[in-house]
C-alpha cells in the first residue's frame, strides 16, 4: 500500500497490523539521546527542536555517508528503549514511529488512545534502506552525531504496521499463529 506522508487521522485509522506500507515523504530521526533532550525541553517548557505535529519519527542512527552518497546505511533501532517517551511524543503530536522489535503492552494502549501507529522497519537491511532516502537535512542536536535529529525525504520506504490505531499488535497475533510449544 503506497502512503504519502504526513499521515492523516483517516489514514492512521484505515491501516491494520501486517499491512506492508511504502512511505513517500518526510520522516524524522530521533533515538535515545534526542528523546532524552526532547523530554527535558517539554519538562522545562522550552521550545522543541522541531514541531512534532503529525510527524513520523524514525528510531534510527545512520552510518556516515561514503563517497558519492548523501547518507550511509540506515535502519530501525530497537524501539523498546523509547517506550518511556511514547506518550510524551504522542502528546506533542507525533502521528507514527518507526522502529524494530516488540514493545511494552502500554504502547499499544497509547496507539489506541492517540490514534497513532507503530511501524516496523526491516532491521538489518540497512544498505538497501539507504537507497530509499532521497534528501537529508540535519535539523537539531548536531553534537549528537549519528543521534542528531535529521529529516529524510524517502520514496517507497518499506515498513510493516506493527501496532495499529485500534491497539492491535502484530507480534501478539502472528507469533501465536506459528507457535508450536
Amino acid at each position: 500500500m503506497k502512503i504519502t506522508l504526513p499521515f492523516t487521522l483517516e489514514m492512521r485509522e484505515s491501516v491494520k497490523i501486517g499491512d506492508v506500507l511504502e512511505l513517500t515523504g518526510n520522516i524524522y530521526t530521533a533515538r535515545d539521546a534526542a528523546h532524552g533532550r526532547i523530554r527535558e525541553a517539554v519538562e522545562q517548557g522550552l521550545p522543541l527542536p522541531i514541531d512534532l505535529k503529525d510527524k513520523t519519527i524514525f528510531y534510527c542512527g545512520p552510518c556516515p555517508a561514503g563517497p558519492g552518497r548523501i547518507i550511509g546505511p540506515l535502519g530501525p533501532t530497537t524501539s523498546a528503549r523509547m517506550d518511556p517517551y511514547v506518550e510524551m511524543m504522542f502528546q506533542q503530536g507525533m502521528a507514527a514511529c518507526i522502529g524494530k522489535g516488540d514493545r511494552a503492552p502500554y504502547v499499544a494502549e497509547m496507539c489506541r488512545k492517540y490514534k497513532g501507529l507503530y511501524l516496523l522497519g526491516v532491521g538489518g537491511a540497512a544498505a538497501l534502506c539507504a537507497n530509499a532516502v532521497k534528501e537529508v537535512e540535519e535539523l537539531a542536536y548536531p553534537d549528537l552525531g549519528t543521534e542528531s535529529i535529521k529529516r529524510y525525504y524517502v520514496e517507497d520506504f518499506k515498513v510493516v504496521v506493527g501496532i495499529d490505531a485500534q491497539g492491535r499488535t502484530i507480534q501478539e497475533e502472528n507469533i501465536r499463529r506459528y507457535r508450536r510449544r
Binding site: G61, P73, V122, G124, A125, A126, A127
Partner: peptide, 27 residues
C-alpha cells in the same frame, strides 16, 4: 511476511557486499 523479510535480508547482504557498504547501520 517472514519470507518477504528474509528475501530483503538476502538481497541486502548481496548489495552491501557488492557496494562495500555496512550491511547494518549498527556496526
Amino acid at each position: 511476511l517472514c519470507q518477504e523479510i528474509l528475501d530483503m535480508l538476502i538481497e541486502n547482504a548481496d548489495y552491501a557486499d557488492k557496494n562495500n557498504l555496512a550491511c547494518c547501520q549498527d556496526t
